[in-house]
Design a protein around this nucleic acid. Structure first.
Lengths: 178, 178
DNA sequence: TTGTCTGCAAACACTTTGCACTTTT
DNA sequence: AAAAGTGCAAAGTGTTTGCAGACAA
């Protein structure tokens, strides 16, 4: 199953395991458990609580944010920074999360059970608005075949100012790396 | 930091100055000189040689690469690392270069006088192949207006394996952050 | 002269790693 | 018991910044 070298998952492309859209009925937790099992990895308390927490918050987030949230939970629900980073990496490998880089740091979003989509990125308030376009996928495949390129995935980010910031005419407009 | 984290032009969107497609006949050097002037900035030896060098190499590159190239030039054509970074930032502000982030570091490409285009990114050899699509721009504008979003720019990166790597069946396939 | 630039060294943000100890299997 | 995981502290990257001396305007 795991033919692909398990690079620390800087990839935003789920690996072979992830591509098997086997059982869509599994919960993220179950799916992750299966993933760990097939990899000879262990189901630890930390990994469990991280998947649990992430599954309950359907927003975009980054590692430090997640770490802070975990630390603010009542229970001894805490994991170290390295563990959080390591687990996020595994969740990407498992196809539960998708990773992208914005403003210099990695942003994660849910991938399991969510349809392919792209983003509008407000350079003023940094919000991400999702949208999807079939046409886009068509263009992608057309362009790829023209170049004898095997497309595995794509990422389109349209940067600009969102409706809210436009009306607020925020003074503090600035633009971030994409 | 201040309210607006003065992210030194991490933007890939040319600022107001850049949007004035005034004189397309100017050389990059002239344009940069004009940019500096309107900003009350000075035309130093370092800035001149950096623009000069960059203008002579029409490839994608990153700051460290440029720094290394400058250091290998015969003449005392050298600038410090901070100066290289600062000047690249200015060149982006001036609309001469466009910046994007791939594999964790900033990649620059020429923007002045070059048509809008997007990229195919080979996750195996890390090469960037350019292409352009009018349809894409259409989609972008359609999506943006649907969301009352003012699109300023967009970036589409199609990741996959290029023709060359596909035939080479490279063993070392790996995937990088985009 | 005057205020901007440069280069150095140090600081930075985010992320990864080495290693001894702890846990899961 | 054996193997994998965790946390700590330290190391890395790529990039930015404070500051004193160097230099355009």
């Amino acid at each position: 199953m795991a033919t692909v070298p398990a690079v620390a998952s800087d990839n935003f492309i789920p690996d072979d395991f992830a591509l098997n859209k086997v059982d869509v009925a599994m919960t993220p937790q179950e799916r992750f458990a299966e993933f760990l099992q097939t990899r000879g990895k262990r189901s630890t308390r930390q990994r469990q609580m991280i998947v649990e927490h992430v599954s309950g918050h359907h927003e975009h987030f980054d590692a430090e944010q997640l770490l802070a949230e975990l630390r603010s939970t009542p229970e001894g629900a805490r994991a170290s920074r390295p563990t959080v980073y390591r687990t996020l990496t595994e969740m990407v490998e498992a196809g539960l999360l998708k990773k992208m880089v914005l403003g210099g740091r990695a942003i994660y979003e849910h991938d399991y059970g969510y349809p392919q989509h792209d983003h509008l990125y407000c350079t003023s308030c940094h919000s991400l608005i999702e949208f999807s376009s079939d046409e886009l996928t068509r263009i992608r495949d057309a362009v790829a075949s023209q170049h004898h390129f095997r497309a595995q995935s794509h990422r389109l980010i349209i940067a600009g100012i969102c409706a809210h910031c436009r009306s607020t005419r925020s003074k503090s407009r600035h633009q971030d790396r994409v």
